[in-house]
Amino acid sequence: MNTSLLSLRAYNFFYFSLLSIFISFLPVYLSFRGVTPAQIGVLIGAGSFIGILSQPFWGMVSDRTKTIKRVILVTLGLSIVSGIALFTTTPFFALFLLVGAMYFFLLPTDPLTESLNYRMAEQHRTSFGSIRTFGAVGYATASLFIGWTLDRLGMEQLVWLFVGYGVLAYLCALAMKDAPASSKPLSWPELKRFFLYPKTQRFFLLVLIAATPHRTNDSFLGVYVQSLGGTTGDVGQAWFLAAVSEVAFFAISARILARWSEIRLIMLASALYAIRYVLCALAPSPEWVVYLQLTQGVTFVIFYTATIQYLYKIIPEEWRATGQTVLAVLFFGISGIIGSLLGGWLFQQSGGAALYWAMGICSAVAFVYSLMLASSKSSVGGAGM
């Protein structure tokens, strides 16, 4: 096996394992520390706002310096330091600052990693999914292992799990190769035209609508499972099943993308998202919610890979890292703010079932909008979509 791809796949495994701790278990950790659902929404919403600023910033640093690996080493290293402080802290104000630091360093590492994966896949003439699958496997195994461990040893041990996965991810990042830089000069006017293009604006609006309920689920899945009587182990199992389904669909994503247009795949994913969240709202027990996460592969993977492929078709080559971070701003930033703030308020006021009904309705709106775009002559991607 190619050693550069081997180290990149190992890095994906441990980085997404680390990310699973932050995304899957941060709300559970905050709840353990006595933070209310509304306060969790404020913390994650504020962090998502910081992500709006930090993700384009680090993406532009990468484009300007013509390196992805070195930027990842900086953001990942500072993430590990911030995470150690976060998972040993109890005062609300300190939690607020440290969650913000994690959103400034750890979340921008995600789009940089995806950009590196895509470029290295192109260079080695392999599929993006064949690399990204290892990240999904890491997320799956870490979710199950961490949930099982915390059930037996206590939430206080979360910091040691974070340190372990963080150090392994950093060592793999040191060993991996950098992505080939674009030889084209950066062109601000070209980037400005890209963002002012109506096709681009319609595409990003669709991403925002569809991503908001997804990010709401990221923030409140664990809290919802526990509100139905589930344990931390159940939360880990839910994320494990979600990530296992991602593995399967990342493995076949190249064939799916080659056969179907991006907008139609986004339309399919939005419809399935709506069904998934409505079923979660109707769930009579935590086990139902846990097993419904098996639909994550057919929803998230299809949606996310289709949006990345379409973005890379329309954005100038020299601005790909920046474009990837703009997509991440929508997916993890703006949608995260909307989902966490409104979701936290709705959860506290009306309960988890009402929240998941609202998420299902939002996904249905995304489906209708994508259907309109697919049937319009001026839709996203034009006739080819």
Rank of each mutant, 00 (worst) to 15 (best):
N2R: 11
S4E: 14
L6N: 09
F16H: 10
L18F: 14
S20Q: 14
I21L: 15
F25E: 09
Y29V: 04
L30D: 07
F32K: 01
V35P: 12
T36M: 02
A46I: 14
G47I: 10
I50Q: 05
G51N: 13
G51E: 06
S54Q: 03
S54G: 12
F57C: 09
W58V: 04
G59M: 01
V61R: 11
I80P: 07
G83A: 09
A85L: 15
F87Q: 09
T88W: 00
T90L: 04
F93Q: 13
Y103W: 14
F105Q: 05
T109K: 00
L112V: 10
E114H: 08
E114T: 09
S115M: 13
Y118G: 03
R119G: 00
M120S: 08
S130D: 12
R132T: 04
F134T: 08
T141Q: 12
A142K: 07
I146R: 03
G147V: 03
W148N: 02
R152Q: 12
W160N: 13
G166Q: 07
L174N: 04
P180N: 11
S183D: 15
S187A: 09
L191S: 01
F195C: 00
L196S: 07
T200G: 08
A210K: 02
F220E: 03
F220N: 03
L228K: 14
G236N: 02
Q237K: 11
W239D: 06
F240E: 06
F240G: 14
L241Q: 02
A243T: 09
A243H: 05
E246K: 08
V247C: 15
V247W: 06
A248Q: 07
R255N: 08
W260Y: 15
M267C: 13
L268P: 03
A269D: 11
L272F: 10
A274E: 00
L282R: 12
L282Y: 09
A283E: 06
V290G: 02
Y291Q: 03
Q293C: 07
L294F: 13
L294K: 05
Q296V: 01
G297D: 04
V298R: 10
I302M: 11
I302S: 05
Y304W: 09
T305M: 12
A306Y: 04
A306F: 04
L311D: 06
I315W: 01
A321K: 07
L327T: 01
G333F: 06
G336P: 09
G339V: 07
G344W: 08
F347H: 05
Q349M: 14
G352P: 10
G352R: 04
Y356T: 09
G381Y: 11
G382N: 13
